[in-house]
Each structure stands twice: as structure tokens, then as C-alpha cells.
């Protein structure tokens, strides 16, 4: 295999245009074979959605506002969940700056979830139940996780791999926008942008560089998350 270039995959989330439509959530379920848990399990706090839209209420009636924040694995450069895993089931890909999750290494100590400040890791409390024909919809590129295994957003690493291989076969560099995780692909308002921060020309770099609106979640913890959020902007209309 030829040497693949260093990357810094990042996601930029424009909170101004996230409409909370859940297209990303369903896209992620479809792409990554994330099981849907039953009503009883949701009540017990075991719902699984690798990407979720957190809705926060602000203010009191009648000046109420609802804010949407899509939260997925932040792919931290210094991820707190990584060192605590005793079996290297979660580990860092230095080349791509990805927080990898190796399902078949996981024994399910669930330490990573405790040490995950963003709470984006999901544990399979039971075996996933794809009833009847629903098994046919499973994406063969992604493992179906068994009970007792931790899972989380991978930035659709299977798509990254496929695109890199395609570029390698064509003997050309990977183009910006060629790797599109399922959530980014689906997002109607294009609130999600995916790209390589090592590429100075990429859309993601352009959005992040010098942007006054950008912030990262719990930046003070020093985990160096690789998901950038852009705050809501302001219109010219005087309020």
C-alpha cells in the first residue's frame, strides 16, 4: 500500500441553519446499522442515536427560544475516552485524527462512556433486533454490533476508506467534498460540512479559519474536539 497522506477530518456544524429535521439521524441509522430500540428501552434511557439533536429551551414565556445542537462523536484530538480502554477497542488514528472504535475488541467495560464528556457513546444493552425482512436493509460495509459492545459515530469511516481507495486507484489526491458522511450527505440545509483541516482550500477550513462564530463544545476540558460549531448569525433587520 502506498503511503496515505496525513489528514485532520473535521465537521463544521452551522447552528444557524440546523432545523432539527432529523434527516441526519435517520441517515446515520441507515448507513451505520444503528439499531432502533423499543419504547420500553427508550423510557429506561437506552435510546441509541449516533447523532442527536439536542434541543434546549431558553427564556420564559412568551420570549421562549428553542436551540438545536446536533451532537455526534467529537473525534477529539486528545480524546478522554481513548486512554481508559483496557483493550484498545477505542484508539486514535494519528494519521487521520479519527477516534476509532474496534467493535470486536470491545469487552464492554463501559469506561469510555464514563469518561466521555459529550456522552456520545452508546452501549448495546441487548442484541440488536432487526426483525424479519429488516435485515435486508443492513449496510454490508458496517459491522452489526452484538450485545455488550460500545459503539459511536465514526465519521462514516467506511466512506472515508472507500473514497481514499477510489482516489488511490485513480492515482489522484482526494478532492474536497469527496468524502461525505451520511449525515452531511442528507442535511437539507447543508448545516453540516465535512472536510480535511490539513487541506487549506477545503470548505471546512474556509469555514473554520478566522470565523468569529465558531466554537467547540466543552472546549475548556482540553479534549481538542474536531467538531466546530458556528453560532447563529444576525440579520441586518433591526429588532
Amino acid at each position: 500500500m502506498p503511503e496515505l497522506p496525513e489528514r485532520k477530518w473535521t465537521m463544521v456544524v452551522n447552528l444557524d441553519t440546523c432545523t432539527g429535521c432529523n434527516a441526519c439521524v435517520v441517515a446515520c441509522h441507515a448507513e451505520n446499522n444503528v439499531p432502533i430500540v423499543s419504547e420500553e428501552e427508550v423510557v429506561r434511557g437506552r435510546a441509541m442515536h449516533w447523532i442527536r439533536i439536542e434541543r434546549y429551551w431558553e427564556g420564559e414565556w412568551p420570549d421562549v427560544k428553542a436551540r438545536y445542537i446536533p451532537v455526534m462523536c467529537q473525534q477529539c484530538e486528545r480524546a478522554p475516552c481513548e486512554p481508559v480502554c483496557p483493550v484498545y477497542a477505542t484508539l486514535h488514528s494519528q494519521r487521520e485524527n479519527l477516534n476509532l472504535q474496534v467493535y470486536n475488541r470491545c469487552v464492554g467495560t463501559r469506561y469510555c462512556q464514563n469518561n466521555d464528556p459529550y456522552k456520545v457513546r452508546f452501549f448495546n444493552f441487548f442484541d440488536p433486533n432487526f426483525e424479519g425482512l429488516l435485515k435486508e436493509q443492513l449496510n454490508p460495509d458496517v459491522t452489526v454490533r452484538s450485545a455488550g459492545v460500545m459503539e459511536k459515530c465514526t465519521f462514516c469511516v467506511q466512506r472515508i476508506r472507500r473514497s481514499e481507495e477510489q482516489a488511490l486507484v485513480a492515482d489522484r489526491p482526494l478532492r474536497d467534498g469527496e468524502v461525505v458522511p451520511a449525515c452531511v450527505q442528507a442535511c437539507p440545509t447543508s448545516a453540516l460540512v465535512f472536510g480535511d483541516l490539513k487541506d487549506p482550500e477545503s470548505e471546512a477550513t474556509r469555514l473554520v479559519r478566522g470565523n468569529q462564530r465558531k466554537f467547540r463544545l466543552l472546549e475548556e476540558l482540553g479534549a481538542e474536539p474536531q467538531v466546530y460549531y458556528l453560532q447563529s448569525g444576525h440579520s441586518a433587520v433591526n429588532e
Binding site: E41, G108, R110, F123, F125, G148
Partner: peptide, 13 residues
């Protein structure tokens, strides 16, 4: 069956 038979949930792992 899986650890689901216990009372564990998402933040309380």
C-alpha cells in the same frame, strides 16, 4: 440476554 436486564442506562454505565 445482555446487560439490558439490569437497571443500567446511558449516562449511568
Amino acid at each position: 440476554l445482555g446487560l439490558g436486564i439490569t437497571g443500567l442506562n446511558r449516562p449511568v454505565m
